[in-house]
Design a binder for these strands. Structure first.
Length: 432
DNA sequence: GAACTCACG
DNA sequence: ACGTACGTGAGTTCT
């Protein structure tokens, strides 16, 4: 791509108007967003993410020791030695040797996943040790041991592939290595993120959209109650709890907020009494009551989701704000299970896909502003609702302003878009 | 290569 | 009676 002429400099400063794009449909989506974004993605891949392999090497030693100790304890509690990484062998120990009651079946046997082991932990000491072993083993094999092997010999950095033609919703995916699933939870997650660093003299800046999917739901549905909550700047889960439980926000407990947060996630995933009941560990009858209470208060959301499913059935596809389409043939299936799949896809895709549209527009806008203003900051990663940049410490404040401004005004919705920013020498510190 | 599990948003 | 929360990528085991 040739750059630098006066004409192209002006062209790069033309904002992309989302409403115009939406009217233009698929061709504009491709020509105005996806094609130019390939250039930005190529730059990000080339920029790469610096990883301090000495930090990872230290973690590997610590984890090795921890795992050895846990393994001893597992063998003691099981009364036998076996391959803990083998669900088949673990299943024999739990359900045959120890006679614990199976919770759920898989295609080939009894499930031993996290949910199952958490329930079994109420009856025996072994499952909790297995869970502990599994979580640390996952971090060691997938991240601490694997990532250093992918550091590029010449740049000394990790260069992921940012794929734009993989997902069904319009999100990016990241592979070889996947840098969109780097651990964040818990002590060890934080310590792994400390290995993702800025160059000496530089810092990382992370900017993420606050509650982008519920905000997009508010916009797409035009629900006045949901819009009101975001316009006032309310805590959305507490506000949802207040509606569901018909109670003042001041009287919302931690537990009520937790339920409301799960309901909000459920709505975005394509709600069903079964799914919500499994997630909250309650009966389907109780889950159904929460869903009914939600839709009584947020009638605009109910109408929107019903209309989205009906249109999807009629058209054979759903669309995002910028006109991206996802075919949903499952909706015309005779199989009720397949129809259920189709309904949840129909509810989720416009929300998840519009969020993907928004951050893509933001990436183009930020990229253009950084060039236009002569900033040397580099965009190095996108994690669905988060953008990560690396820059000289001297230009942090200027870049922070540009990034927040361009992300928040990437599109104009019925509710404000809010961006949180963090800065630091490593990804843990920079995470807002 | 399928199955299972689990890391992220 | 039964069952799946949405979207991904990768490591390990086993066929």
């Amino acid at each position: 791509m040739r750059i630098g002429s006066a004409a192209s400099a002006v062209a790069r400063l033309q904002p992309i108007l989302a409403d115009k794009l939406a009217a233009g449909g698929l061709r504009d989506l491709f020509e105005k967003v996806e094609l130019p974004l390939t250039v930005v993605l190529g730059e990000m891949e080339a920029n790469g993410f610096l990883v301090d392999t000495a930090v990872l090497a230290g973690l590997a030693k610590e984890l090795e020791q921890q795992l050895a100790g846990i393994l001893d304890e597992i063998y003691r509690k099981a009364g036998t030695e076996f391959n803990v990484n083998s669900p088949k062998q673990l299943s024999e120990v739990l359900f045959e040797k120890l006679k614990l009651a199976p919770i759920r079946k898989t295609k080939t046997g009894y499930s031993t996943d996290e949910d199952v082991l958490t329930q079994l932990a109420l009856q025996h000491e072994l499952p909790a040790e297995i869970l502990n072993y599994r979580s640390l083993s996952k971090l060691k094999s997938t991240y601490v041991d694997a990532l250093p092997l992918l550091v590029h010999a010449e740049t000394g950095r990790l260069h992921t592939s940012l794929n734009q033609t993989v997902t069904a919703t319009g999100r990016l995916s990241s592979s070889e290595p996947n840098l969109q699933n780097i651990p964040v939870k818990g002590e060890w997650g934080g310590r792994i993120r400390e290995a993702f660093v800025a160059d000496p003299g530089a810092v990382l800046l992370s900017a993420d959209y606050n509650q982008i999917e519920p905000r997009i739901l508010a916009h797409l549905s035009q629900d006045p109650v949901l819009i009101g909550a975001f316009v006032r700047g309310d805590d959305i889960h507490a506000a949802t709890a207040a509606e569901i439980f018909s109670s003042p926000v001041a009287q919302i407990t931690t537990d009520m907020r937790r339920v409301a947060k799960t309901v909000n996630f459920g709505i975005i995933y394509g709600i069903s009494p079964y799914g919500l009941s499994a997630q909250l560990g309650i009966s389907q009858q109780e889950a159904k009551k929460y869903i009914e209470a939600y839709f009584t208060r947020f009638q605009g959301v109910k109408t929107f989701l019903d209309r989205t499913i009906a249109e999807a059935k009629q058209n054979g596809y759903v669309t995002t704000m910028l006109g991206r389409r996802r075919p949903i043939p499952e909706l015309r299936s005779g199989d009720p299970t397949q129809q259920g799949f189709g309904q949840r896809m129909a509810m989720n895709t416009p929300i998840q896909g519009t969020a993907a549209d928004v951050i893509k527009l933001a990436m183009l806008a930020v990229s253009r502003r950084l060039v236009a203003e002569g900033a040397t900051a580099k965009m190095i990663l996108q994690v669905h609702d988060e953008l990560i940049f690396e820059m000289a410490e001297t230009e942090v404040e200027r870049v922070r302003k540009i990034v927040v401004e361009e992300m928040e005004r990437a599109v104009s919705l019925a509710v404000p878009l809010k961006v949180d920013v963090g800065v630091g020498k490593n990804w843990r510190q920079a995470h807002p």
